[in-house]
Design a protein around this nucleic acid. Structure first.
Length: 272
DNA sequence: AGTGGCACCTGTGTGC
DNA sequence: TGCACACAGGTGCCAC
């Protein structure tokens, strides 16, 4: 499910329910996500939520009794519920607030992550946040930076864009879309990308991600925002999932290719 | 150091 | 209808 825009839309969706609220109760299932969920999570009961923020595709919730890091993996979804309805299959974690709002994590494939950090710990200096590259909207993510990083990359530019140590938040959908918008072939190696192309990449990564956030994310199968509304960015996808269809720009056939076990979509005529 | 392959999981769609 | 298989939005670990 979630790429960065979906996570940002989710964060905005849960923010009003959680910010300033007191956590009345915590629940976690016995099933392991990417890692088992610790019983230390119950230490958050009685805590006041002081801050919600996003780093890469992680949501960090800071409270007076420690912090909570949530990753949605491939199929994770957070919903905001008002009457604490019965848990359904694949509901693995929930927070109930003093305002009787339930924030519930449903994650079919269990690639998500829910971690607890004590008050004394700074999650930004610890795994998994510690070694992440720059945010796409930050001042440090510039064409100069990208160019210097790509110099030592011998893998494909598509895989470079998805490499979290280079830039965070560009997943499989948006990597294809960004390269199409830049007219750069996904098959080229990172170290073949010119400075002027890095300028294009930075600009389009920012534009496409922010446009998708505005439209509520991308719905491929089952993504909904925390309010249950579907995202509309899927209508703006030019190549992702469009293999064997005509390119919207030149009319030639969109191709797909597997790179690093992930499918890439591109127009062989438009992209060089 | 950088890269490719695989593992973690369940559900869905396709072809036989 | 049933079965086998491929594939799906992410990420970390391992061996080379």
């Amino acid at each position: 499910m979630p790429e960065l825009p979906e996570v940002e839309v989710t964060l905005r969706g849960i923010k009003s329910a959680l910010e300033g609220a007191v956590i009345k109760s915590i629940y976690h299932s016995d099933k392991s996500l990417r890692e088992p969920m610790s019983d230390e999570l119950y230490k958050l009961e009685g805590a006041k939520v002081t801050k919600l923020e996003r780093r890469a595709k992680y949501i960090l919730i800071t409270t007076t009794q420690g912090s909570l890091l949530i990753h949605l993996g491939m199929t994770g979804h957070l919903s905001v519920l008002e009457d604490n309805p019965k848990r359904k299959i694949h509901d693995h974690f929930e927070i109930v607030t003093d305002g009787d709002i339930t924030i519930r994590l449903n994650d079919t494939r269990r690639f998500g992550l829910v971690l607890y950090y004590p008050v004394s710990a700074d999650p930004f200096t610890l795994p998994p946040l510690k070694d992440l590259g720059p945010e796409p909207f930050s001042d440090t993510f510039t064409a100069d930076y990208l160019f210097s990083r790509l110099q030592r990359c011998k893998k494909s530019i598509k895989q470079c864009l998805m490499d979290n140590s280079i830039v965070v938040g560009v997943g499989n959908i948006y990597a294809s879309e960004v390269l199409f918008e830049c007219r750069i072939s996904p098959l080229r190696l990172g170290n073949s990308i010119k400075k002027t192309e890095c300028e294009l990449l930075v600009k389009n990564i920012q534009q496409i991600l922010s446009s998708s956030i505005e439209k509520g994310g991308t719905t491929i199968r089952d993504f909904e925002g925390a309010d249950g509304k579907l995202g509309y960015f899927v209508q703006n996808l030019n190549v992702y999932g469009h293999d064997d269809e005509p390119c919207r720009v030149c009319g030639s056939t969109i191709q797909s290719v597997v790179q690093g076990q992930r499918t890439t979509y591109y127009c062989p005529k438009c992209q060089h």
